[in-house]
């Protein structure tokens, strides 16, 4: 016998009435999903930044033509474009971007591996929270360039020093993201878990971690930004012929040759990598997490 069998005295007619009434209510209260087409959305998202960039280039060109600064200090957009083309065609810039991206990515992954369990411990173990919680949030506001001299003395000039700086820069953000993700879990979810019989590990797996995800993803995003900034600071200072040439080293090379166009090209490379990772990794990840939970408010 199916669980659907109704044993009420009212009979089937009554039951059908209720079913259709309920179906009507559900239909009335369900929101219609209206989404603009993908292309239209892409188009409307693209033109404002393009317009802004064109405007910026125009202002730059005007300042260049007004002659307030000599050409070596402020090259024209066209000069920078030429250097950019050369750097791209001989592969220097792409190679530097690749080297930096690899370092940044590896450093970030290491920070992820350390920051995640650290955040869990701080959030869930009271003595640890009292002891090192404030220290970790404090470290977040320490500019990571301050670690560079210490890292050079400790590790010598080399990759180890660079990774140490990236790690120290990014780990606190990721740990703090985890902590705030867990702190923001509505107490109701934990009660529900308890009522449903979730204990210890199963509570962590089915309730605690998924509930903390939005805050944690925010922490990852910030952790990446910190990795990338720390890496640039480290690369600017830590360089030697044996080390691979990253974007920071390229910048320093441009500065020591008084080559403003190369410096600009390097800055552009740093920006492009930063924006690309944000757009291709973290923005979609965050959007997905928030959309699943209905936390993403559609903006027109």
């Amino acid at each position: 016998m199916s669980v659907l069998d109704s044993r009420r005295g009212g009979g089937n007619g009554n039951n059908d009435d209720l079913a259709s009434l309920e179906a009507g209510l559900d239909a009335l209260e369900t929101h219609l999903d209206t989404r603009a087409s993908r292309w239209r959305k892409l188009l409307s998202a693209t033109w404002p930044p393009v317009l802004a960039i064109v405007g910026l280039l125009g202002v730059w060109e005007l300042i260049y033509r007004s002659g307030v600064k000599p050409t070596y200090a402020l090259p024209s957009p066209a000069d920078v474009g030429l250097v950019l083309r050369d750097q791209l065609s001989d592969g220097t810039l792409l190679e530097a971007m690749g080297t930096s991206l690899t370092r940044g990515g590896l450093g970030f992954l290491a920070a992820l591996a350390i920051g995640t369990p650290l955040g869990l411990l701080i959030a869930r173990v009271r003595p640890i929270r009292r002891g090192i919680g404030p220290l970790v949030s404090g470290l977040q506001s320490l500019p990571s360039i301050a670690w560079v001299p210490a890292a050079i003395i400790f590790f010598g000039i080399g990759d180890a020093a660079i990774y140490a700086v990236v790690l120290l820069g990014a780990t606190p953000s990721i740990a703090n993201g985890m902590v705030s993700g867990i702190d923001q879990i509505p107490p109701l979810y934990q009660r529900v878990g308890k009522v449903l019989g979730a204990r210890g590990l199963s509570a962590a797996r089915h309730v605690l971690l998924p509930a903390a995800l939005p805050g944690y993803v925010g922490g990852l995003r910030q952790g990446w930004a910190f990795s990338w900034r720390s890496l640039m600071a480290a690369e600017l200072i830590v360089h030697s012929p044996e080390l691979g040439q990253g974007l920071g080293q390229l910048l320093d090379f441009g500065r020591s040759n008084n080559d403003m166009s190369l410096v600009f090209a390097g800055i552009l490379g740093i920006l492009v990598v930063g924006i690309a990772v944000e757009l291709c990794v973290f923005a979609p990840l965050e959007r997905r997490v928030l959309r699943r939970r209905g936390l993403l408010v559609a903006r027109s």
């Binding site: 109701l188 529900v192 509930a211 939970r293 209905g294």
Partner: peptide, 14 residues
């Protein structure tokens, strides 16, 4: 064990 329903539906949003 008794089952419990809260005032809020308390469904897990993920």
């Amino acid at each position: 064990r008794a089952a419990l329903m809260f005032q809020e539906p308390a469904l897990l949003p993920w």
